[in-house]
Design a protein around this nucleic acid. Structure first.
Length: 221
DNA sequence: GACCAGGCACATC
DNA sequence: GATGTGCATGGT
């Protein structure tokens, strides 16, 4: 890991924000929708997640009590467009079960308290891995935890800031050691990684005009 | 018709 | 502890 990493992360953020501005991810949506979206989005294109959420809204089932009451099979059928729907139905039910059994149905209670404790509680739920846990904590709970996704790794890898096989926790650690915890900034930073990743770092042919182009760079994927 | 998309759990070596 | 595989839809 490069020693100048702290400054580089700040510089990357500054450059991306200057280039793309505020991304407004998950704006104006409820915490419930964020949680459902985070689980449905696993290894799935966001357009498919939106179809599934639209199905839940249309039938009036995008509601904690309704989700708790319905069967896994009914839920699976509604979220089918999101793909891996049987697995995701089980995961949503697992989340809702913990929410009601351990936190009296209060998402606020579930996501509050010591950040590491709250994170551990989420990770203990079947189907909630590190990225989904961090997405829920950051976007639904407003907690300052960094969400490391495929784009984040790809961009950092491409700019020689991480080893190609760096695991999730080590990359997250990098952000938490290098930057002051700041919910709004972490939110923005994650979205900016997706923006630059989609536009420039997906293939080697797209480096033209990349805001990070003059930074240390690896041409190979 | 591959290949990918805002992963995760589980099996196996 | 690292690597491989199933899950499954819709877009490119």
């Amino acid at each position: 890991m490069a020693k100048q990493t702290p400054h580089m992360l700040q510089e990357i953020f500054d450059r991306l924000f200057a280039a793309y501005g505020s991304q407004h991810w998950w704006p104006g949506k409820t915490a419930l929708e964020v949680v459902v979206g985070a689980i449905l989005a696993q290894n799935t294109a966001w357009t498919n997640v939106e179809r599934a959420i639209a199905n839940l809204k249309r039938t009036g089932l995008l509601d904690w009590d309704r989700l708790c009451a319905m069967t896994e099979e009914e839920l699976a059928e509604l979220i089918r467009p999101a793909g891996t729907f049987r697995i995701k139905a089980k995961r949503l039910k697992a989340f809702v079960e913990v929410l009601f059994d351990n936190h009296a149905g209060s998402l606020d209670a579930m996501l509050s308290g010591d950040l590491n404790d709250a994170r551990s509680r989420l990770l203990f739920i079947d189907g909630i891995g590190p990225e989904t846990a961090d997405a829920i904590l950051l976007y639904a709970g407003g907690r300052p935890t960094f969400v490391v996704d495929a784009y984040t790794k790809r961009v950092l890898r491409r700019h020689l800031m991480i080893d190609d096989r760096a695991d999730y926790e080590s990359v997250r650690q990098l952000f938490h050691e290098s930057l002051e915890p700041d919910t709004a900034m972490f939110n923005e930073f994650h979205a900016l990684f997706v923006a630059v990743g989609k536009k420039h770092c997906r293939t080697r042919a797209r480096c033209e005009g990349c805001p990070l182009a003059s930074m240390h760079h690896e041409d190979a994927i």
